[in-house]
Computed example of a mutant assay.
Amino acid sequence: MRTQIVAVSDTHGLSQVLPLLEKAYPHASAYLHMGDLEDDPRLYPKWIFVRGNNDYMFGMEIPDARVVRVNDTRIYMTHSHRFGYSRREERIAAAAKENDCQIALFGHTHVPVARKIDGIWVVNPGSVAFPRDGKSSCYAVIDIEEDGTIELHLLHEEEWPFRLPAQNRRWFW
């Protein structure tokens, strides 16, 4: 049986995308958010969160990093703002490896990434609200086959199985 994981980061208040993702991927085994939700996480009980540098409200104790297990796969989650820019992805991969994880998910940069470092898949789903790479908004879908094979999909907005209503977009810059 295939395991499917939906991963987002840096929604920055564009929280209406979360229920749309749940509806688009109803059989997902996990919904993971890498921080900068800027909303009350209690409103999204299906999602697992880590704290971003802009998640300081709502009195919730959300960890800066955590390890989650989805079936037989261990996943390291962090927003990554505490990692700095120099060799960020390599240091995130090392933290995942120290925690016996096969996948490391991070956010903060708003730039999608999917690459293997020292045997660890390092994935940044980008930002569904404010991409910074000159491309459209993005999130990730991770499919894990029974044999442990991992397939990563970075889905840009033109590939999404849903559309955000225009009036729901928030643009700060």
Rank of each mutant, 00 (worst) to 15 (best):
residue 72 D to F: 05
residue 8 V to K: 05
residue 68 V to K: 06
residue 124 N to V: 01
residue 95 A to W: 03
residue 141 V to H: 06
residue 87 R to F: 13
residue 173 W to R: 13
residue 25 Y to E: 08
residue 75 I to E: 08
residue 121 W to M: 07
residue 110 H to D: 06
residue 164 L to E: 05
residue 107 G to K: 00
residue 65 A to M: 11
residue 82 R to G: 15
residue 158 E to W: 02
residue 13 G to S: 02
residue 88 R to L: 15
residue 172 F to W: 15
residue 155 L to I: 14
residue 137 S to A: 15
residue 16 Q to R: 08
residue 92 I to C: 12
residue 34 M to G: 11
residue 45 P to Y: 05
residue 92 I to Y: 10
residue 134 G to D: 13
residue 22 E to R: 08
residue 102 Q to R: 14
residue 102 Q to K: 12
residue 132 R to V: 07
residue 65 A to R: 11
residue 66 R to C: 09
residue 71 N to R: 10
residue 162 F to L: 09
residue 166 A to V: 15
residue 104 A to L: 06
residue 5 I to G: 01
residue 123 V to S: 02
residue 19 P to Q: 15
residue 79 H to T: 03
residue 63 P to T: 03
residue 26 P to I: 11
residue 7 A to Y: 03
residue 98 E to A: 12
residue 112 P to Y: 00
residue 9 S to L: 04
residue 123 V to K: 02
residue 48 I to R: 15
residue 85 Y to V: 14
residue 103 I to K: 07
residue 105 L to I: 05
residue 157 E to C: 00
residue 123 V to F: 04
residue 133 D to V: 02
residue 13 G to I: 07
residue 19 P to R: 10
residue 10 D to G: 01
residue 23 K to I: 08
residue 132 R to C: 11
residue 88 R to I: 03
residue 127 S to H: 10
residue 68 V to W: 04
residue 139 Y to K: 02
residue 143 D to T: 14
residue 109 T to Q: 07
residue 40 D to S: 04
residue 7 A to D: 03
residue 173 W to Q: 09
residue 173 W to I: 13
residue 123 V to M: 09
residue 92 I to P: 10
residue 22 E to V: 12
residue 15 S to R: 03
residue 78 T to R: 08
residue 147 D to K: 05
residue 109 T to W: 01
residue 156 H to N: 11
residue 53 N to M: 06
